Computed example of a mutant assay.
Amino acid sequence: MSSGAETVTREFTIVIDAEPAVVWVALTSPEYTTEWWFANTVESTWEVGAPIGYLDERGLPETLGEVLVSEPPHRLATSFHPVWSEEVREHEGTRVEWLLEAFDDLSDPPRTQVTLTHSGVVPGSVLDREISPGWSYLLESLKKLLES
């Protein structure tokens, strides 16, 4: 991404029938990410400043970054550097934040509103065109996994 380019923020929200702690585990555990994140395994210690990587089935990175905020089980932010194709590799400097908010409505099962915010995206870029369907698919996959 060239410096000085205009950027936008894309936001995606879904409600999942699970407690925030359960959603957090699914976000941060490799045994769960393989089930909902394009069969990728996540690797990180989840400490602020730690690297994060999503690796494909061959062990090759698809997305790299650094943990910027880690407040289990409610908030996680990372830098986001896509490397899954040549077309998106230039898009460094974006940020992804997950906000997990429990509903206070005594519903059974407990519910969590998951808000994913991807900022620093150049409008109309290849990355911009890929993240909208990509994040929507991933959130639906996460919901399906946790509610089945």
Rank of each mutant, 00 (worst) to 15 (best):
D105C: 05
E47A: 14
G134F: 06
V96F: 04
E86N: 03
R10E: 13
H91T: 00
E31S: 08
I52M: 13
V69A: 00
S44T: 11
V121C: 05
V126D: 09
L76K: 04
F103K: 09
F103D: 10
T94E: 11
L146Q: 08
T94V: 09
E43Q: 14
A18P: 12
V22W: 06
D17L: 09
E86C: 01
V67Y: 01
D17S: 15
P72L: 03
E66D: 11
E86H: 05
E87G: 02
W98Q: 03
T115I: 12
K143Q: 15
P109E: 02
R95C: 11
A26T: 10
F80H: 14
E57K: 14
W46E: 02
P72H: 04
P109R: 04
L138W: 10
L139H: 10
V42T: 09
W36E: 01
G59R: 07
P82G: 11
E19S: 12
E11M: 14
E90P: 10
L76C: 06
L55H: 13
F80A: 01
R75W: 04
W37M: 14
V22N: 10
E19K: 15
V88T: 14
V121F: 09
L127K: 02
W46I: 00
G49E: 05
Q113C: 09
L27C: 07
L100Y: 09
R129M: 05
Y32V: 00
V25T: 15
H81Q: 12
I131T: 10
L146E: 01
A26Q: 07
V83L: 01
E6Q: 14
P110Q: 04
Y54I: 01
V122G: 03
E90F: 09
E101L: 14
T9W: 01
W135I: 14
L146K: 09
I52Y: 05
F12I: 11
S125A: 03
E57Y: 02
G49F: 02
G124S: 07
S119E: 12
W46V: 02
A26F: 06
L138C: 15
V48R: 03
G120R: 10
H81W: 12
D104V: 12
W36L: 01
T28K: 02
P110I: 02
P51H: 06
V122E: 13
A77W: 09
T28P: 03
G49N: 07
F80C: 07
L100E: 06
E92S: 11
E31A: 07
T112K: 01
L60Y: 01
F80G: 00
W84H: 10
L116H: 07
W98P: 05
S107W: 08
W36N: 02
L146C: 06
E47L: 06
L55W: 07
F80Y: 15
L146V: 08
P73A: 06
P110R: 07
P73V: 08
W84F: 15
D104N: 14
T33P: 07
V23T: 04
R58W: 00
G93M: 12
H81S: 14
L145N: 09
P20E: 03
V8P: 04
H74D: 06
S132K: 12
D104Q: 14
L106R: 13
S44Y: 08
L55C: 03
P82A: 13
R111A: 12
G49D: 08
Y137A: 10
E43D: 13
P123E: 03
H118W: 08
P82Q: 04
T33Q: 00
T115G: 02
T34W: 00
L139V: 12
P30H: 10
H74S: 13
